[in-house]
Design a protein around this nucleic acid. Structure first.
Length: 200
DNA sequence: GTGGGGATTTACT
DNA sequence: GTAAATCCCCACA
């Protein structure tokens, strides 16, 4: 009804529609809920449009990266290394293939469920790393394109934010487009890309 | 149709 | 520290 407070889903969509480098740090501290588990995001990476050599969208639109080219606020899920899923929040205006990779978070609800989805280990590792985060939240192929407007809660204070190079990329490894909350134990450690085996 | 590579995690030495 | 697991995507022929 018109006199009600504006639904939070519209606020979320509007917030995510901005430039990806602005949106990425603002996702820190946000809460994402799926399949009975809620995480507080502590580490993300920006993938900035069609000119970012590290982005799946760099070589244009394909069936896999289709969702990245759509409107902000949807989930882009991809499968990699034959066994892992990773999740991104699509940002920017419709047609701009920018997204934010969800690299790590702290489980704040559904702890037992998250534990049951992961191999045994310390709780701080349950969503420490993009594939672990997906596993804890039970995000997979079927969640590609999912509208996050109802699942994502923004506005939590993130604390101090650090930036640095993105993890595991061969190209554009110098761009400091990884963001994390300073001092968080759930943040994954930096790992450079494996160098290509040299034939010399 | 073929082949190289991957925004990772885990287990083992 | 290093290596294995494991399959989908995409570029090219």
């Amino acid at each position: 009804m018109p006199w009600r407070r504006q639904p939070s889903r519209d606020v979320v969509r509007a917030a995510l529609a901005g430039p990806v480098l602005d949106v990425a740090p603002r996702l820190l501290g946000a809460r994402l809920t799926h399949a009975g588990v809620t995480v507080r995001l502590t580490e993300v990476e920006a993938y900035a449009g069609p000119d970012d050599p590290g982005s799946h969208a760099y070589r244009g639109r394909t069936p896999r990266n289709e969702v990245m080219f759509g409107p902000a606020g949807r989930l882009y899920v991809y499968f990699t290394y034959g066994m892992h899923f990773c999740a991104n929040v699509v940002t920017g205006s419709d047609g701009d293939p920018s997204a934010v990779l969800l690299r790590a978070g702290e489980i704040v609800d559904g702890l037992d469920l998250a534990r049951s989805r992961r191999t045994r280990g310390p709780d701080r590792d349950l969503a420490r790393g993009p594939a672990r985060l997906c596993q804890a939240l039970a995000i997979g192929r079927e969640q590609n394109g999912l509208d996050l407007a109802e699942l994502l809660v923004l506005g939590e204070p993130a604390g101090e934010v650090d930036t640095g190079p993105r993890v595991g990329l061969r190209h554009a490894a110098d761009r400091p487009w990884r963001f994390w909350i300073t001092g968080e134990p759930t943040v994954s450690r930096y790992v450079a890309a494996k160098p290509r085996p040299s034939s010399t």
